[in-house]
C-alpha cells in the first residue's frame, strides 16, 4: 500500500515536470508517460519516501500556505543578511545551537532542514536523530527550547500536517 502510494505520487511528479518542460501535445505526453513508468519501475526497490505525504484537503491547503510562508521568510532572510553584509560594523553574533524536531518522517525532516537553511540567518550543519545542529548568525537564545521556538516552530506546524 505504501509502495503503491509512493509510485503514484512519483509518477504524478514526473509527469508534472515533463509537462512543464514540454507542451500539452499527445505525442509528447505519451513519451513522457512511458518514461515516467519506466523510472517508477526502476526505483520500485528503493525506500518509499514519498508515502509520508498525507493526502487530504487540509494537508493540501497547508502546503499552499506553507509555500507562501516560506517565500515570505526567504525574502525576509535575504534582506536581513544583506543588511548585515553592507553595514560597516558587521553585526554578527554567530554560534551553533541545537534544536529538537517533532517530525518523524525522513522526508519531512529533509524539508525542515532545507527550509531552515533558507531562512533568516540559520544554516543546518548536522542532523542526529531528532536534533538539528544549526549555525545561527545572531544567537538570541542559547537553550534548546528557546532556539527551537524561534527557528523551527514556524515551519513545523505546517510540515506536521503535510508529512506527519
Amino acid at each position: 500500500m505504501r509502495k503503491l502510494k509512493h509510485s503514484i505520487l512519483l509518477f504524478l511528479t514526473l509527469m508534472i515536470f515533463w509537462i512543464l518542460f514540454t507542451s500539452l501535445d499527445v505525442q509528447e505526453l505519451t513519451i513522457g508517460a512511458i518514461a515516467s513508468i519506466i523510472i517508477v519501475l526502476m526505483t520500485i526497490g528503493l525506500k518509499p519516501v514519498l508515502s509520508a505525504i498525507k493526502l487530504n484537503p487540509k494537508s493540501i491547503l497547508f502546503s499552499i500556505i506553507y509555500l507562501f510562508v516560506f517565500l515570505k521568510e526567504l525574502i525576509k532572510s535575504n534582506i536581513d543578511v544583506a543588511f548585515r553584509v553592507i553595514s560597516p560594523k558587521l553585526p554578527i553574533n554567530p554560534g551553533i545551537v541545537k534544536v529538537k524536531t517533532k517530525l518523524k518522517s525522513p522526508l519531512g525532516r529533509a524539508f525542515l532542514a532545507n527550509s531552515i537553511t533558507l531562512t533568516p540567518g540559520t544554516l543546518t550543519v548536522e542532523m542526529r536523530d531528532e536534533y538539528f545542529y544549526i549555525h545561527w548568525i545572531d544567537v538570541t537564545s542559547e537553550n534548546i527550547e528557546g532556539a527551537t521556538k524561534s527557528i523551527v516552530s514556524n515551519f513545523e506546524k505546517y510540515l506536521e500536517v503535510i508529512f506527519g
Binding site: I92, N93, P94, G95, I96, V97, K98, E142
Partner: peptide, 11 residues
C-alpha cells in the same frame, strides 16, 4: 569558528 562565536553545541 570565528572568535565572535557565542557557543558551539555540536562540538
Amino acid at each position: 569558528l570565528t572568535d565572535r562565536t557565542k557557543k558551539d553545541d555540536l562540538e
